[in-house]
Amino acid sequence: MTGFLTSFLRNRKAAFGLAIVLLYLAVALLAPLIAGYDPLARVARPHQPPSWDHWLGTTRMGRDVFAQLVWGTRTSLMVGLVAGLIVTVNGTIIGITAAYFGGVVDEILNFMTNVVLVLPQLPLLLVLAAFLGQVSPWAIALIIGLTSWAWGARVTRAQALTLKTRDYIEASRMLGEPAWRMILVEMLPNLLSIICFNFIGSIIFTIITQATLEFLGLGSPLSLSWGTMLYNAQTSSAITVGAWWEIAAPCLAIVFIGVGLSMMNFGVDEISNPRLRTLGTIGKALKLQRALDRERLKEAGQ
């Protein structure tokens, strides 16, 4: 665990992505101090462009876009983290259980995973959200969490099957170690990179999916998130009247959190994949060799 965290922080991509995500988390936690205005209060004239008083302009209702963006960050991150946690926990439990016990247990869980995998996910989410009506962010997180675990379970199961045949697992089994200890102590730490990859990817998927559902009008109009900001901008014809800042603010927020989480995912992939680590080392060696060759050519020219 400690070695993985050390490698994660030393990886440039992972550290850069983590810095972006931590910035978003700080904004979400300090929203009351940063926003400056009540996000639902009318504080200026409608569709006022960005200025010193209102950094990201105002909406058709005269609400401050920056305040809405800050408070929307809290909601969108909350949904992403909650749904990502549900997806990761479900996928990890199902994947490890299927791989370790095998037999009938593996067949049943594998059948469930295949059924969920073949279902078109976004249409399924649209149907569920439409059936439930205008759902709250918590309900969206729960829907996504309970319908998006199959891919993580499949990947975790495949990796756990390879661990199951390792010598130290066989030795622990011969010594009579209980199943719970074999899973939690012997297998789970070796699946940490896969679990982190699944968790980060689930957060990205959830944030984008939540914004999509709310943009289509399936979210609660009483909640404030990046998706509802886009929905309100659409219904007020913000682009038509030239209020581009209402669309740009939530879109850029989604883009940058996606970049940060993706960089973290790339870093986890490099840490867990020896080939990528080797390619990175080879690339650095080639750059150094080219630099030395240029220096030699300069010396030879002189």
Rank of each mutant, 00 (worst) to 15 (best):
L163M: 04
V21Q: 06
P46S: 09
N190S: 10
T59K: 07
L142G: 05
L40G: 10
I257Q: 01
V27K: 07
I143D: 00
A28T: 07
R10W: 06
L252G: 00
R294F: 12
R294P: 01
V105K: 05
E107P: 01
T6C: 04
G36E: 04
S7I: 01
R277K: 12
L117Y: 11
F205P: 00
M61Q: 15
W180Y: 15
K287Q: 14
A233T: 09
N11S: 10
T240C: 00
W149F: 09
I247G: 00
L33M: 10
T162P: 00
R42Y: 01
V21W: 03
L30P: 04
W55T: 06
L81A: 13
T209N: 06
A291T: 15
G95F: 06
G57A: 10
P50Q: 07
G280P: 03
L184K: 03
H47M: 11
F197A: 10
K164R: 15
R45P: 03
D106V: 13
D106Q: 14
L33H: 06
E186R: 14
L224S: 08
N198F: 02
A14V: 02
V87D: 06
T165A: 11
P46W: 10
G201W: 08
A139H: 12
L22E: 06
W138Y: 12
T97M: 13
V241F: 08
H54E: 05
E177K: 13
T6Y: 08
I96R: 00
V116K: 08
W55D: 04
L56P: 01
Y24D: 08
G62R: 02
V135D: 04
I207D: 02
L191F: 03
Q234H: 13
T59D: 12
K164E: 10
E186C: 02
M1A: 09
L125Q: 05
L25T: 10
R154N: 07
D269Q: 14
F8M: 11
F8I: 03
C196I: 15
G267C: 03
F266W: 07
N265R: 14
S223E: 15
L261N: 03
T73R: 01
T2I: 13
G242P: 11
V118Q: 07
G267N: 05
P120Y: 03
A150M: 14
L5M: 13
R12Q: 12
G95R: 04
A238P: 13
L213V: 07
I204G: 02
T212W: 10
Q134D: 10
G91V: 07
L125K: 00
L213C: 09
T2A: 09
F16C: 12
V241H: 08
